[in-house]
């Protein structure tokens, strides 16, 4: 049994503690926006936030989580695509197949949490997700646009 705080709700899950968080999200909770692609923490498709930090959920056993750790998945970022990154992604038509994009967006959101105005170099260093369709240049532009949208929202 694990008690988790996911997207602001506390949930209890009957599951073996060694199960990676990714599979608990996908198979116990039906949060299938978080994707499986490599299973070894390399590609970033399974990226979620734990207390605001980007975490590759395929390598995190659910036993290392507890009710105090705030987990946010792509479904919790905003369901209505109102987050600045989602708005920017929409405006620039960033996704191609889209499979890696939830992880890509969550990695970008964690970057913006720490660094509200990242330059290209910061983006290059922090966004290490794999995208086989090759959306990188639009991802980079999308992050910059999200910064602008954020600023407009505040002004």
């Amino acid at each position: 049994m694990a008690t988790l705080n996911i997207n602001g709700e506390t949930v209890e899950v009957e599951v073996d503690g060694s199960t990676p968080l990714l599979w608990v999200l996908r198979e116990q909770l039906g949060l299938t926006g978080t994707k499986y692609a490599c299973g070894i923490g390399l590609c970033g498709s399974c990226t979620v936030h734990v207390d605001g930090e980007a975490v590759r959920s395929c390598t995190v056993p659910v036993s290392s989580m507890d009710a105090d750790k705030k987990i946010v998945t792509i479904e919790g970022l905003s369901a209505d695509n109102s987050h600045p990154l989602q708005q920017a992604w929409k405006e620039l038509d960033v996704p191609q197949c889209g499979y890696c994009q939830p992880g890509m967006i969550m990695a970008a959101a964690a970057l913006l949490n720490k660094n509200p105005e990242p330059d290209d170099e910061a983006i290059n260093q922090q966004i290490t997700n794999i995208c086989r369709c090759g959306t990188f240049n639009r991802v980079r532009r999308g992050i910059h646009l999200a910064v602008d949208i954020n600023k407009r929202g505040r002004s």
Binding site: G30, G33, N81, Q86, K90, Y99, I105
Partner: peptide, 21 residues
Amino acid sequence: IPRLDTDDKLNGKQIFGTDLQ
């Protein structure tokens, strides 16, 4: 023209084969 299939790819709603239940 913007793509018709973007919205669901931004919030986890897009169902891929792996997601089918």
